[in-house]
């Protein structure tokens, strides 16, 4: 059972929606809205892509030096 919500409400809660932090009812309302509203869908897609770019910078090839250091350390464990 989803009730209609306005774009302003979606924008307000969009980041929490993407973080999966909303209660199931509100989450369903936002998802439902975005199936019909291109503006909100576009905005959500933008935030999603930006977030995935941010997530990517949390991964960097570890230097060989660190890899060797960790192996040596674990030998001693």
């Amino acid at each position: 059972m989803t009730r209609d919500i306005r774009c302003e409400d979606v924008i307000e809660k969009l980041l929490e929606f993407l973080d999966r932090e909303l209660d199931p009812q509100t989450e369903a309302e936002l998802a439902h809205h975005m199936e019909h509203c291109r503006a909100c869908f576009t905005r959500a897609e933008f935030e999603r892509q930006l977030r995935s770019k941010v997530a990517d910078v949390g991964q960097s090839e570890a230097p060989d030096r660190l890899r060797l250091r960790m192996r040596a350390l674990m030998e001693r464990f």
């Binding site: 949390g58 991964q59 960097s60 570890a62 230097p63 660190l66 192996r71 674990m74």
Partner: peptide
Amino acid sequence: YFAAEVERLLDRLYGT
């Protein structure tokens, strides 16, 4: 187990 997980996660741990 620990060594294998560290090997697998090292790029993420280092990147973070």
